[in-house]
Nucleic acid binder design. Structure first.
Length: 496
RNA sequence: CGGAGCAUAGCGCAGCUUGGUAGCGCGCCUGCCUUGGGAGCAGGAGGUCGUGGGUUCAAAUCCCGCUGCUCCGACCA
């Protein structure tokens, strides 16, 4: 080994470091978890807060959530729901009214025991979810079948003192929406539960461009206090599952616990049937992990805080002219309703800006330089494919909607392809374990319905049941663990 | 909550083994120059070394506690 080798090696090392500095993001293939942490911080979505497990949603992160709220809210209203707001504090006694519910949430409740310098007579929990307070209120509001159904949604923050936290995916405090409805009949409540799952499906697939696996949770995975829980599961790029939304049919469990009764047409006092359904800021994690790549975020146009970033390019002499022209374009796009920003800072090179906004996931970059102006065109670059195209300025307004739609559709298809490619079918525990451990992804397997078999899959393969699909791609005749006849086909995966 | 790792300037790190003036790159500020894929030169600012104790004449460095973050497990949206 001579000195040359070391020297060359050192130089190569340096070059590599430079390159990595430029990228600033750990490649997904190297370490997906680090990629995730790098991306959310570099793209300025969040920052760690001074309280353990809590994060700050910075404007770009919060605007993503606002976009989700906007899209969901119209869908809730369209299906007849109205928003209301219930208190953050829940009296301790409320939790004892539904047995499964207490057991499910007790370990993660934070308590207020003192206020105004005095010890409280009854401890107050900071809500982990609002079934109990809402149940209490519904009992006061509902007396007759004429009062039903009650269709209310709440946008709120909730707290669950999680052991292990991860930004967006699992934080001590998170933001969400929780719908709570009460109905006269089981059928109507069940229909509501399924309807909201459909609403979520529409939102997640068409707005977030994230394909979902729809189905019912197994008893061990269902919500504490529910009769049935339905979920949408999404597959992240590391093959792990993330529960994108849930909808619960609560039967009369909470109605009985909180005495929510109504006098029916037949003059009989009856318990109502309730539902609850929610989607949380965890969904931001899905957007990031389903679409992101080694350059950073890739955001679906429908929710991107900035849909078009305009980068004017030009030497000093031409700069004023180019910036003015770009400003006019920006104003046109703004009045056409696009979320557009222009970055005309002079102390950053165009190349720097290209990388920056790619990292931030902006769907379309509009470059405008003297050459573009001379030929009456703009240069557009797609974040999803990296493709650059020259578009005559006169056609920009017309082309943009198509282009955005195409990006949205392409992103969905890419994600769908990935999910399909990483969905497998297994016939034995060994096969499940092999697939989960060698390639991750989702595995469909037959299940007899026994908790023990489900638990063995968790122990051996490290995968949990995600849900029982409504329409399994294949119906498996026998339980993958015990070989008895299968009652269901179940999706298994490692999960966030 | 168990197991492992990390904590030094805004960010990424070196220094710690063997205690003795806190360093580098990027970023930031000023000026010049520059702009079609993270430009260049010159000058400059910025750190009670996460925190609390201990050992020592002396602690970023050694020892103990605590906190936070990351990873791996058990619990969850």
């Amino acid at each position: 080994m001579d000195g040359c080798w070391y020297e060359r090696c050192g130089r190569m090392q340096m070059a590599k470091q430079d390159k990595e500095f430029v990228k600033e993001i750990t490649p997904q293939s190297e370490d997906f978890s680090r990629w995730y942490i790098d991306v959310i911080q570099k793209a300025d979505l969040m920052d760690y807060a001074p309280v353990r497990g809590c994060i700050v949603f910075k404007p770009d992160g919060y605007e993503l959530w606002e976009a989700c709220q906007r899209e969901l809210d119209v869908r809730f209203k369209r299906t007849g729901h109205r928003n209301a707001y219930f208190p953050l504090f829940i009296p301790e006694s409320f939790f004892e009214k539904e047995k499964e519910h207490v057991e499910g949430f007790n370990p993660e409740l934070p308590w207020v025991t003192e206020a105004g310098g005095e010890k409280l007579e009854e401890r107050l929990a900071i809500r982990p979810t609002s079934e109990t307070v809402i149940g209490h209120m519904y009992a006061r509001w509902i007396h007759s079948y004429r009062d039903l159904p009650v269709l209310i949604n709440q946008w709120a923050n909730v707290v669950r003192w999680e052991k292990r936290t991860l930004p967006f995916l699992r934080t001590s405090e998170f933001l969400w929406q929780e719908g709570h409805t009460a109905h006269a009949t089981a059928e109507e409540a069940e229909r509501e539960t399924r309807q909201m799952l459909d609403v979520y499906t529409d939102f997640v697939e068409n707005v977030l461009a994230v394909p979902v696996f729809r189905g019912q949770k197994t008893p061990s995975e269902k919500f504490a206090g529910a009769v049935a829980t339905y979920s949408l599961e999404a597959m992240m790029k590391d093959g792990k599952a993330l529960q994108a939304a849930t909808s619960h049919y609560l039967g009369q469990n909470f109605a009985k616990g909180f005495e929510i009764k109504y006098l029916d047409k037949d003059n009989q006092l009856k318990y109502v049937y309730t539902t609850s359904w929610g989607i949380s800021t965890r969904i931001l994690g899905a957007i990031i992990m389903v679409h992101g790549d080694d350059k950073g975020l890739v955001l679906p146009p429908k929710i991107a805080p900035t849909q078009v970033i305009i980068v004017p390019i030009g030497p000093q002499k031409e700069r004023a002219r180019v910036v003015e022209h770009a400003g006019t374009l920006r104003d046109q796009l703004l009045s056409a309703g696009w979320r557009v920003r222009m970055d005309d800072r002079e102390d950053f090179s165009p190349g720097w800006k290209f990388n920056e906004y790619e990292m931030r996931g902006v769907p379309i970059r509009l470059e405008l330089g003297p050459r573009d102006i001379a030929s009456g065109q703009v240069t557009l670059a797609r974040r999803d494919t990296g493709e650059k195209l020259a578009v005559p300025e006169s056609e920009l307004a017309a082309r943009l909607p198509q282009l955005m739609d195409d990006i949205q559709a392409t992103m969905y298809q890419k994600a769908k392809q990935f999910a399909d490619d990483h969905s497998h079918i297994a016939h034995s525990l060994g096969e499940i374990t092999e697939i989960i451990q060698s390639q991750r992804g989702f595995v469909l397997a037959g299940w007899c319905g026994d908790d023990g078999c489900e638990r063995r899959i968790k122990e051996e393969a490290g995968a949990t049941s995600r849900n029982i699909p409504f329409q399994p791609p294949q119906t498996l005749p026998t339980c993958a663990v015990c070989g008895r006849p299968a009652a269901h086909s179940v999706w298994y995966a490692k999960a966030y």
